[in-house]
Design a protein around this nucleic acid. Structure first.
Lengths: 115, 115
DNA sequence: GTAACGTACAACCACATGGTTGTAGGACGG
DNA sequence: CCGTCCTACAACCATGTGGTTGTACGTTAC
C-alpha cells in the first residue's frame, strides 16, 4: 500500500495519541526532561488517574517509555516515535509531488492551458 | 508563505483525522487523483454515508477540499494540511535535539579538563 | 511497624465516534 | 414531465474515549 512501514494499527495509535492537546504537551515535556507520572499529574488540572491514562496511550503509541525507579515510574520521550509519524507524512507529500510532477510533464508535453 | 501556528483544536482535528486507516487511504487517493464522494465510496466496504462522514472529517482538518461539479462533489487532497502536520512533528524533534545538545554541552564542559 | 507516597486498575459516567438506514432535494438524461 | 444519480442530513445504535472516584499494593520515610 501507499504507506508500508508500520502496521495500520500502529499508525492509528500514533496519530490518535497525538490528537490530544494534553498528550502532546506531555510528549513535549518528557522530551525535554524526565518526569514521574505524579510529577506530570501535578502539571495538569485533572486527576492522577487521567494523566496515567494519557501516559498509557502515549506508551502504546511508542511516543514515551516508562521505567521504574524506586516507587516512581519515570516517563521519557521516545523521539523515534515522533520521527516515525513524521516519516509517514513525508510519504504523503512524496505521493503528492509525484502527481504534481506527472501533471507538470503532461502540461509540458501538451502545452495546454486549463482553468 | 508560512502557515501560522495552529490552534490546539486545529491540531486535534488534524491528527484525529489521520488516526483512521480509511481516512488515510482517502487522503492518499485524492492526492493522486480527483474522486467524487460516490467514487470514493465505491472503493470501500462501507456505506456511502460512512465515507461521506470520513470526507467531512478530513475536510474539517483541511486535509482535503470539496468542489461542486454538476451533481457531483469532487474531493481533492490538500497537501498543505499534510505539511502542517509534518511541521508540527518537526517541532517536537527540534525540542528533543535542543535537549540533546544541552546534554552534550554539559558533557563537553565536564570533559574540558581532558582537552 | 505505621504512615504517607506513587502507582495500577477497576467501575462508572457523559459524551464522541464510526457505523447503519432512511428521507429529502438538486442535477442530469429520457 | 419522470426517473435516476449524487449528495446531504437526521436518527439511531454500539462502542470507545476522557474524565471521575475508589480500592489495592509496593516503596519510602519516620
Amino acid at each position: 500500500m501507499v504507506v508500508g512501514r508500520a502496521s495500520e494499527d500502529e499508525v492509528d495509535r500514533l496519530f490518535h495519541a497525538l490528537a490530544d492537546a494534553t498528550r502532546r504537551d506531555i510528549v513535549a515535556r518528557v522530551l525535554v526532561a524526565e518526569y514521574s507520572v505524579s510529577g506530570l499529574a501535578e502539571q495538569y488540572d485533572m486527576s492522577f488517574a487521567a494523566v496515567q491514562k494519557h501516559v498509557a496511550v502515549l506508551e502504546r503509541a511508542s511516543l514515551v517509555s516508562k521505567e521504574k525507579r524506586g516507587r516512581e515510574q519515570i516517563v521519557r520521550g521516545q523521539v523515534d516515535g515522533v520521527q516515525r509519524a513524521r516519516r509517514l507524512l513525508d510519504d504523503y507529500e512524496r505521493i503528492w509531488r509525484q502527481r504534481v510532477d506527472q501533471i507538470a510533464d503532461i502540461l509540458a508535453e501538451d502545452a495546454e492551458d486549463e482553468d
